[in-house]
Simulated assay, not measured.
Amino acid sequence: MSDQTSGGFDYEAPAKRHTPKTEFAVYFAIIFAACLPLACLTWALSLLKNGTANGRGPIKRAWSQANIITPMIFAA
């Protein structure tokens, strides 16, 4: 067997792969577009039920959901 502890070889770990920002933005846009109709429906039902438009609007809700879901995809 050969001696693997001799230190004659400097191993450099491969560079960590960074996900491009454009890919994140594309996924975010797709998820935002998918969440927007549901957020509008939820907001409208809440408006009908409560009679007031208090709280976050549909765009803010969809943005928040997309902001939660998209990083989960890239974390895997």
Rank of each mutant, 00 (worst) to 15 (best):
A15Q: 07
Q65T: 08
L36N: 03
E23Q: 12
A15V: 07
A33C: 13
S64A: 06
F24N: 04
L48G: 10
A44E: 12
C40L: 15
L48A: 14
S2C: 06
A25Q: 06
T70D: 01
T19Q: 03
K60A: 13
P37E: 15
A13K: 02
A44S: 12
L45G: 14
A44C: 12
H18V: 12
A33P: 05
W43R: 06
A34R: 11
F28H: 09
T22N: 13
F24Q: 11
I31F: 01
D3N: 09
I73G: 00
P37S: 15
Q65G: 08
K16M: 10
S46C: 07
A53Q: 10
G8K: 03
Y27N: 12
A29R: 01
P14V: 01
P14S: 02
A25S: 04
T52K: 04
W43Y: 13
S46E: 14
T19V: 08
T42E: 15
N54C: 05
S46W: 07
A76C: 06
Q65H: 09
F24P: 02
T52I: 02
T22V: 15
S6D: 08
T19R: 02
L41V: 04
W63L: 06
A15D: 06
F28E: 13
P71I: 00
A53E: 13
E12R: 00
Q4Y: 08
I30M: 13
L41E: 14
F9C: 02
P20D: 12
T52F: 08
A66M: 01
G7Q: 03
R56V: 08
I69F: 09
E12N: 00
T70P: 00
L45M: 08
K21M: 13
N50S: 07
Q65F: 12
R56Y: 12
T42Y: 15
F28W: 11
R56L: 13
T42D: 15
A29K: 04
A15S: 05
A25D: 12
K21A: 13
K21N: 14
A15T: 02
S6E: 06
P58T: 07
S6V: 05
P58V: 03
G8D: 08
A76N: 05
Q65C: 11
L47Q: 06
L41M: 08
V26A: 14
A39H: 11
F28M: 07
I30A: 14
S64V: 04
I59K: 03
A75N: 01
P20S: 14
F9E: 01
S46I: 05
K60L: 10
P14Q: 03
Q65N: 08
A34M: 14
G57Y: 01
K49Q: 13
R17H: 08
A44V: 04
A75Y: 03
E12W: 00
S46Y: 05
A76W: 03
